[in-house]
Design a protein around this nucleic acid. Structure first.
Lengths: 145, 145
DNA sequence: CATATTTCGGATATGTATATCCGAAATATG
DNA sequence: CATATTTCGGATATACATATCCGAAATATG
């Protein structure tokens, strides 16, 4: 479990918004949770957090919903992960040591550090828009079958 | 969180046993949980599971405790992980898709697959005995400070 | 054989992520 | 202005990993 459920839903939701709201359309929580197969009220909470932090936009009232501004800057995947999961996913010792460093490494410190650092760098270079493009091209999927 | 708490304690406990019971000595739950800084009754459960599955040995009664047979085969770290955490840690889609494969990949499938496969292979090649040796040599640690 | 020690196994408690509920606020529409 | 729609925020519920408790079984020792 690299990411929490919340984080998985967040990534999926933003990808979906990115694909569906380019043209100014807005999506309700119901739309989104159905599309990404996530529980509706739980997804609502996550969307609200994302909106509060400016990753996505929202509008209340009829015809309202969530969306991404046309001229919005690309969203770095790692930024989403850090908002939702904090640095848990990547800065945590594999064996749970509070302080696990070069000077005081756990027995698998070097291995873990190397791999998590690589993955982190990768997620820092990927944007939601890039992932959305993969899906639009039919080379990747957000849900099963 | 790559591993569960249970799994972290399991790895630490077995490493500790490996270092301290070469000479036929046995360690009680109290000894072990103190050494690896883990909750005693919870650690007991994990040790019992490990014993039941033959990763370690146990003896009841006074002077009893847990230990590793002198002529026991080296313990592959990945085997421990698979017993305690199942294949959760390595065979799970980064975005939680039930079926995430070459044919039907999630947008980060390839990246995750590549990295988790490497890490898995690494843990399949590492033994508890090797990790214990690192600690004995003072190059790694099981607890803080 | 009585006792102390220790693991064993089942039941229970706690904490935290996950999930839901509900009333309030905002707003588009007629 | 009344109404329906939708997000917002706080409170509550659920599920599961984590942690604890307790009596029973085994066994070394005197």
């Amino acid at each position: 479990m690299m990411f929490s459920k919340s984080c998985e839903y967040a990534i999926k939701a933003v990808i979906h918004l990115c694909m569906e709201t380019r043209d100014g359309k807005r999506l309700s929580v119901a739309d989104i949770s159905e599309a990404i197969e996530s529980p509706e009220p739980f997804t609502a909470k996550i969307l609200q957090t994302l909106a509060r932090h400016g990753f996505i936009s929202s509008a209340k009232g009829p015809g309202g919903g969530f969306y991404i501004e046309k001229n919005a800057a690309p969203i770095v995947v790692m930024d989403l992960v850090e908002l939702i999961d904090g640095d848990q996913a990547f800065n945590r010792c594999g064996l749970g040591l509070k302080e696990c460093s070069e000077d005081h490494p756990c027995p698998i410190h070097n291995e873990f550090k190397s791999y998590s650092a690589r993955l982190k760098k990768l997620l820092e270079s990927k944007t939601i828009q890039q992932l959305a493009a993969e899906i639009k091209a039919g080379r990747a999927f957000l849900v099963n079958s």
